[in-house]
Design a protein around this nucleic acid. Structure first.
Length: 240
DNA sequence: AAATCAGCCAACCGCCAGACA
DNA sequence: TTGTCTGGCGGTTGGCTGATT
């Protein structure tokens, strides 16, 4: 089946919206709503495709939209949501009042991913690559670096790991501490406490999550699978 | 001061799924 | 049941702006 174009493209305007177009669209929607986007341009006298009108309204003109930079809390939320639901920007937007899917997508691609990359390069210097195992293909599981880069990953003076860090110089152990302290910050949202139990000779990382009815152990065979498992586990935790 | 580069973000495009005739 | 329409979603692009050379 050949799909008909969403609108008659001939004579329709594209590109940036003018102030006048914005005003026209806004006043039309305020008076009549937007029950039919396809018909809206004609009815409002705009030389735009309905899709374009809808996008302009939902991403910019809608008064419910919160303008301005994303807060650290919002960025953290995006990171957590992305970890659990992937690139489902609209679903994330539903959990961030006043933010649009387009905005979230842009922030992810411009800010968060960049921070993530910066963190990765830092970690590459700190820690030699595990030659026996290729990098996991787990989608975007770079949360540890994201959190750290957001300024929440500093080792808490209260955490058990910070005590450890004062006595160790082993690069691998330092790496593990960074990850764990980031996790502590992350999980604090769930009201959990987290502690490092041991770092065995094989350098595998184990993290015990202290939850209501006991403990859960996460074992880190590699960074990616560790974080994947961690977030899956965090997903199962009760909400507060 | 001018040219170039890089980052950001608004907007577009194509695809998909649900509603409806 | 099938075909069409419509809205919505995610990926991508292009232009604007500020920084750098």
């Amino acid at each position: 089946m050949v799909r008909a174009p969403c609108c008659d493209k001939i004579g329709l305007k594209k590109g940036p919206w003018t102030r006048e177009e914005d005003q026209r669209l806004t006043s039309y929607i305020q008076q009549n709503g937007h029950s039919n986007w396809r018909a809206l341009p004609k009815l409002s006298g705009l030389l735009r495709c309905g899709k374009s009108c809808r996008l302009r309204w939902t991403n910019y003109l809608n008064p419910d939209i919160k303008r301005g930079n994303f807060s650290k809390e919002e960025e953290e939320t995006i990171i957590q949501l992305h970890e659990s639901m992937g690139n489902r920007w609209s679903a994330m937007a539903a959990k961030l009042p006043g933010r649009t899917d387009n905005e979230i997508k842009n922030v992810w691609h411009t800010h968060i991913k960049k921070k993530l990359k910066d963190y990765n390069s830092t970690q590459d210097i700190k820690r030699p690559k595990n030659k026996s195992e290729p990098q996991s293909k787990k989608p975007d599981s770079s949360t540890s670096k994201e959190i750290e880069s957001l300024g929440h990953g500093s080792i808490s003076p209260k955490s058990s790991t910070s005590e450890l860090s004062s006595v160790t110089t082993d690069p691998d152990i330092i790496q593990q501490e960074v990850l764990i302290s980031s996790t502590t910050v992350l999980l604090s949202e769930f009201g959990e406490s987290i502690c490092l139990t041991d770092i065995p000779d094989d350098q595998d990382m184990k993290v015990w999550l202290e939850i209501d009815e006991g403990f859960k152990c996460l074992k880190g065979d590699d960074d990616m699978s560790f974080w994947y498992n961690l977030f899956l586990t965090a997903e199962e935790l009760p909400e507060f």
